[in-house]
Design a protein around this nucleic acid. Structure first.
Lengths: 472, 472
DNA sequence: GGGTATTTGTCCGTATGTATG
DNA sequence: TCATACATACGGACAAATACC
């Protein structure tokens, strides 16, 4: 494939943009068909007598707009724009997990819980896992530290420090099998009959855990800056002694809690003995706009913040590894009340993760995924421009989903879901995230998760939604 | 390395200077160690949402002051600044688990919790684990069934049926990370303010879990046939509605519960609504004498028995996989109260175990280990013949430890432990397994576990004990 | 068929031009 | 004129996939 691209050093726009425009048109007009390979950046640069980074910038632009796909070490390929539904073949042979297929004629599922596993570094994971199991390290199969392997806690601690501004020593960290288990454990540690204030709507699994542990829960309203801290004294949250929040990207609202609100929360927590803030940082890795705000835990000077995180979003939900960072004060309570619990994460798994972290694979993977999700995010947001007259868009600054709110109230939430469903598109009504769905006073709103979808699927989904909701 | 730098557009000084100051401090305080790589200018710029030249200016400043070195095409690295800060040594080479060595001059440790890993089929485990991870089975990294993979539950169910006489369908099985977690989950399911009768002495971890969940615990005495079922009505166990027992090999007493006693328990359970028996079958795989007695669960016609088992003894404690078998009646309660909990066992791990079971490796391994433990058991029992005049032997029909009781009361338990300790031998006094150690009315008794010891170690240990306790 | 050379996307530091006070 | 911030363009180093011997 030799491309004849007219380049003008002083032409309209910079060189990389000329290249980008040219190729984009070629694809749109069908001169470059889906699946065909573009010249490599080097070859093209050579032909055009420009630097490689020039061609590269052009390709990156095309990539982020979904016109082409990149396959590392192989080449760039023209993407399948507008294309019929490809049949997803079942994972054959080995163990076949069930209920994996999309049922009910759903073609595009905008699930806010999905993640993209296409770029998961299976190779590396496999290699590490093999290495961990070699040199028959017997100790690896004996009982380990109940808090989790010390070295792993060290690695997590240093990551949290640099990436999230969390300040802790490894012995404040407790490794456990997933956030639900960790919240359960935390309930044991906090003990007693706590009254927990939660954002409303919120992450329902957390709500269920607290309820199952006999805690009272007070739903507290949110505004654009996050939870209404004022309601903790003399409002909906009256009487609460603990607050569960997701400051970096609230689920499901997508709100990023303002710095001011964070400080209000912290001073609330310090005002009375025994108050705690639980910071669930499930989603902090992905951000698209605005400056990063360090974790609440890092702003806290008085040991009132309990930090909880997992690798479910950033690596994979199935690896089931999360961690709790307890303030020093609670460590004694932990040792007393739950220190005897054996770790819930297998030791070989902890070691695999340890290697993954310390050898820099995690960082590389995060960088890659950030780029991937940014790309999908941009495609989605781009496509949603057509919706803007009828719908307002929310939560788009971070995370892996956005919210669409019916501006004119033409449809109810249920109608939005149903109409989409008839076109084979699945969207998720906001009501289901309310502690008491009947108290949902928001205008009709649905969630659109895009992490697990390809660029084509996103575009196909948006097209379906347009038809479903009658958008020109 | 991703850095969380608090940036303020209107803050003190220009942005590049804020970045420069922050990194300088991180280096000075040793949070960034010499030789570690800084994020590239591109990545940092992306994270902080500033232009690349801004980060570059910060780096140039650091460079000119000697805090960092630049390596073209590779990155910026923290320079070796004045050795004021102690060098945090990176965990070198492989991951080395700590505190693995036996401390305190202990030569032979008769730990009743040990197992023999020398024969663990590392090769096979590694091979399976590699196979599970190949053909990049993406589904394996997505969320799985909260109860655990169906196929694994099938395999466990069929093993339990044939080996233990347990009758259940796969959907009554819940996979979880270790017995402590499962007991915690079970407490959630049973709910309320239960009163639990436990054998005394008992498995203390279980006791702690029940206590931590707010249950009342009633210690019930045992005789040679097991727990005194009669005491459940009008004795120590009065008022209990749940009984936790280890019929196949009680820990720590080693008692095998008689069939008659089992039937008494079952009829107690049936006598009143809401009563349950929890059968912990942690140890059932190893038996040296007498006919195998099927699990309580198998004798139960009325769905009163909750069965709990793990692979900690039979495979390895660190793999952290156990299971709960619930009676049909409780499954509804499970779904309602805890059905939303994600599984605590990673999906790849579940699949590895699945292969291990269904390909017959587990059975082969069990057979091998039975022979191995039988051998050690016989060596120990043989050596203990010399002790018979002074000590009576108990619990030797099953499991991986035996009990030695001082016939003549020449020593207290503590003296036995200490005298042994002086010879470099570690034995475990019975008192520590009592819910209230001061209520221990048994004659001085110690536990001798032999699973993790070699034949030579056992013999060396026995020789030491003879000297320590003055046995001819 | 197993080692080696080549190709390729991706990462990187660097250099220079431009806009705005 | 200078400090700050941003945009464009350059070419080297690297690991993984592929092609070749």
């Amino acid at each position: 494939m030799e491309l004849m691209i007219p380049l003008n050093t002083k032409g309209p726009g910079p060189m990389y943009e000329q290249i980008y425009r040219f190729i984009k048109e070629e694809i749109r007009q069908g001169n470059l068909t889906a699946g065909s390979r573009l010249p490599s950046t080097r070859v093209l640069a050579e032909n055009l007598k420009v630097s490689r980074s020039t061609t590269q910038m052009a390709y990156e632009q095309l990539l982020s707009e979904g016109y082409i796909d990149s396959e590392p070490c192989r080449g760039y390929y023209v993407a399948q724009i507008e294309e019929l539904v490809e049949v997803k073949e079942a994972p054959a042979g080995r163990f076949v997990p069930e209920q994996e297929e999309k049922g009910n004629g759903i073609d595009v599922d905008f699930s806010p819980r999905g993640i993209d596993l296409d770029r998961f570094p299976f190779q590396i994971w496999r290699k590490i896992s093999r290495n961990v199991l070699v040199d028959d390290n017997r100790a690896l199969f004996l009982n380990g530290d109940p808090q989790g392997e010390y070295a792993l806690r060290q690695a997590i601690g240093s990551y949290l420090h640099s990436a999230r501004g969390v300040r802790c020593r490894p012995d404040q960290i407790i490794i456990g099998a997933g956030s639900e288990y960790l919240l359960m454990l935390l309930s044991l540690i906090l003990g007693g009959d706590r009254v927990i204030a939660m954002e409303n709507p919120t992450y329902k699994q957390a709500y269920r855990v607290f309820r199952s542990q006999g805690y009272q829960v007070r739903p507290v309203n949110m505004d654009r800056s996050g939870i209404m801290a004022s309601e903790l004294d003399g409002g909906m949250g009256e009487g609460a002694d603990t607050v569960y929040v997701m400051p970096s990207h609230q689920y499901p609202m997508g709100t990023v809690m303002s710095v001011r609100r964070r400080q209000e929360l912290l001073s609330w927590a310090c005002a009375k003995e025994g108050r705690y803030l639980i910071e669930d940082d499930y989603d902090s890795e992905f951000r698209y706009k605005g400056k990063p705000i360090p974790a609440l835990q890092g702003m806290d000077q008085n040991g009132r913040v309990i930090y909880i995180g997992t690798f479910s979003k950033s690596i994979a939900p199935a690896i089931r590894i999360g961690f709790l960072v307890l303030p020093q004060e609670l460590m004694m309570r932990y040792r007393e009340k739950a220190g005897f619990f054996s770790s819930t994460v297998s030791r070989p798994d902890q070691n695999i993760l340890y290697q993954f972290l310390t050898e820099g694979h995690y960082e590389r993977h995060l960088n890659r995924m950030r780029a991937v999700y940014k790309g999908k995010h941009d495609i989605l947001l781009g496509g949603l421009r057509d919706f803007e007259e009828a719908f307002s868009i929310g939560g788009e600054y971070a995370g892996l989903h956005v919210l669409l709110t019916d501006r004119k109230g033409r449809y109810t939430e249920e109608e939005l879901e149903k109409a989409a469903g008839k076109k084979g598109i699945r969207v998720y009504g906001l009501s289901r995230y309310f502690i008491h769905p009947e108290h949902n006073s928001y205008p009709p709103t649905v969630l659109l998760g895009y992490a697990s979808l390809s660029a084509e699927e996103i575009q196909r989904g948006l097209k379906g939604l347009k038809e479903a909701w009658g958008i020109a």
